[in-house]
Write a protein that binds this DNA or RNA. Structure first.
Lengths: 201, 201
DNA sequence: TCCCATGATACTGCATCCATAATTATGAAT
DNA sequence: ATTCATAATTATGGATGCAGTATCATGGGA
């Protein structure tokens, strides 16, 4: 169901037909409703009492609330990672980054998106704070509710790559403050790209 | 159920008997299980497949992961609040703080705890970021899973008050950086108090 | 005496069914 | 023709019942 929500197969703001979905998945309404409760707590859907379940629709205000927090959290991850990173960790990151360069060169936004997520997850592992990582994962899910096509903006892939290089450089230097700033700016830059996209619609 | 979990009436690590609780609340297992799903997503309980539901038990490592994040988030709230605070807001905060002084003088840790929460919530309102506020509320719930008796430590109330005065001073001066630092240190100080408590057991 | 296997018990997870409330459709009155 | 009231339909929220599996106990074998 998460996939279908992210793919906008279930459209934002749209009503979720419990019986139809239950029938489709070949299960009864009971487990489906429990799943909806979980999705609701993750912020992917909203449950209106006696009115049913609706896919969450993010307002511009919502996005402006989530992104700064995301930037703060990811910045913290980078900071902590810079303190703890080993050369083996760094090597792993470089492999992932090489993949990113490849997909950017091929202008493959979807693959870039996937590998980008792997990059950030790897950083979370290095930082070693599971709670922090979980908050970021949740926030990322919420952000994914919006169109992720910002990566398809002219030049955004290249820009994102450059920002990643900054982060990698800070990690190589084991400079926590710089890593935090680079990562923070990277996320804010992502928000800006999204805004440009919204503005052009 | 949250109350009972926080009050350790349902003990950390303990198994939750669905039927017993359902019977006690006079409802069937279905809505109770849905409630457990919500609590699980809030981190208050853990659901082990085919094994039932258990009250979350925080390890020292868990606490060391949550508190820094909490300090980061609350720091951000203070920072943002310092930017947006009005004189009317400040007056409200001072009323709450006066209450805190009163309860501290009376050495009433429970009341202090409550009003302290009101203070922090008021700050969240001023900061005006609902997403950020929600993350903090969740984190606070998780933290409440541990004993909150750290406030009963000799001198902790006075120390907490002093830290609040620092925060208020930063807000009065509308100094975001100072507000962030003060709040951050306040939270870290809370973690230290908890550690002292754990050490004395 | 200790360990493993097998059966009994009990709890979880799911399906089905029912009641209540909301929404929509239909009919009447202005 | 339009609006309001009432009835019918539909969906949500909860209760009940059942199948499958995990745990525990008991008994047999080493």
């Amino acid at each position: 169901m998460r996939q279908r929500i992210f793919a906008h197969e279930l459209q934002p703001g749209g009503w979720i037909d419990e019986q139809a979905l239950a029938l489709e998945y070949g299960i009864s309404r009971t487990p489906l409703r429990e799943a909806l409760k979980v999705l609701a707590s993750e912020g992917l859907v909203v449950l209106k009492p006696r009115r049913g379940c609706y896919v969450t629709e993010l307002s511009e205000q919502d996005i402006d609330e989530v992104f700064p927090v995301m930037a703060l959290l990811e910045g913290r991850v980078a900071e902590e990672a810079a303190r703890r990173i080993t050369s083996a960790d760094f090597a792993r990151l470089e492999v992932i980054h090489a993949d990113l360069e490849k997909h950017a060169a091929a202008n493959n936004a979807d693959r870039f998106f996937e590998v980008n997520q792997r990059f950030h997850n790897a950083l979370q592992d290095i930082a070693g704070n599971r709670y922090l990582a979980q908050l970021i994962d949740d926030a990322r899910q919420v952000i994914k509710l919006t169109r992720r096509d910002s990566l398809r903006l002219e030049g955004r892939l290249k820009q994102s790559l450059a920002e990643h290089r900054d982060i990698l450089e800070a990690l190589r230097q084991k400079d926590p403050a710089k890593a935090r700033r680079s990562m923070h700016d990277h996320l804010i830059s992502g928000r800006t790209a999204l805004a440009r996209l919204a503005g052009s619609n």
